[in-house]
């Protein structure tokens, strides 16, 4: 990983911690938007542009707007304190747990791009989509072909889930019209 990627990870961790620590709700929403943007850039760096676009559009864009709208429609508690009070025993316990997980799990993780990762351990399956996609579907983006052709039925269910999300918002807010 390059220096850029490391500084990006540090930026993401810093914004994540800041999201937890800030007392003011508006500041939290803004910092959370920055966190999502950092994640989007990291996904691009990890060669997952489709995921990066979704994260940038949904995470940094729509979620920030909806959260801003929510505090505009509800109350925003005024406070002089800059950050939340830190509950030290909880931080110690959670921190120790995370540290334990890191020491247990991280050494076993494969380097980015390594050919010994489990993804490559079943090349009959993974290579099938990469080599056959253009032949079978005529689409150059293998992600789209898996999404809409090979796993089309799953995507149909996914689209219906989005539809259900819109309808259930109406139910929860007891409204009958979208606009």
């Amino acid at each position: 990983m390059s220096l850029f990627a490391y500084s990006l990870v540090i930026f993401i961790l810093a914004t994540a911690v800041a999201t937890v620590l800030f007392r003011d709700v508006l500041s939290v929403i803004i910092v959370f938007g920055a966190y999502s943007l950092g994640m989007a850039i990291l996904y691009t760096f990890l060669l997952a542009p489709d995921v990066a676009m979704t994260e940038a559009a949904i995470g940094a864009g729509v979620t920030t707007l909806l959260l801003l709208l929510t505090i505009a429609r509800t109350t925003r508690p005024t406070t002089d304190a800059l950050r939340e009070r830190i509950h030290v025993p909880a931080v110690v316990v959670v921190g120790a747990f995370v540290l334990l997980l890191c020491t247990a799990v991280l050494p076993d993780m494969y380097p980015v791009g390594s050919t010994s990762t489990p993804v490559w351990s079943n090349p009959d399956v993974t290579q099938h989509y990469i080599t056959e996609t253009y032949e079978q579907t005529g689409v150059e983006n293998a992600v789209t072909s898996v999404l809409a052709a090979y796993r089309g039925f799953d995507t149909f269910g996914e689209a219906v889930v989005v539809f259900a999300a819109g309808v259930s918002t109406l139910l929860v807010l007891k409204r009958e019209v979208f606009a």
Partner: peptide
């Protein structure tokens, strides 16, 4: 090409649902 069926689903199905739901979520929450 099967590509055109795939594109039809993406353009006339998914994108309509998603754009509609994003706008509706915003207005219902507003």
């Amino acid at each position: 090409k099967p590509k055109w069926g795939l594109e039809a689903v993406e353009i006339a199905g998914i994108s309509l649902i998603v754009s509609g739901v994003i706008i509706s979520l915003f207005f219902t929450m507003a």
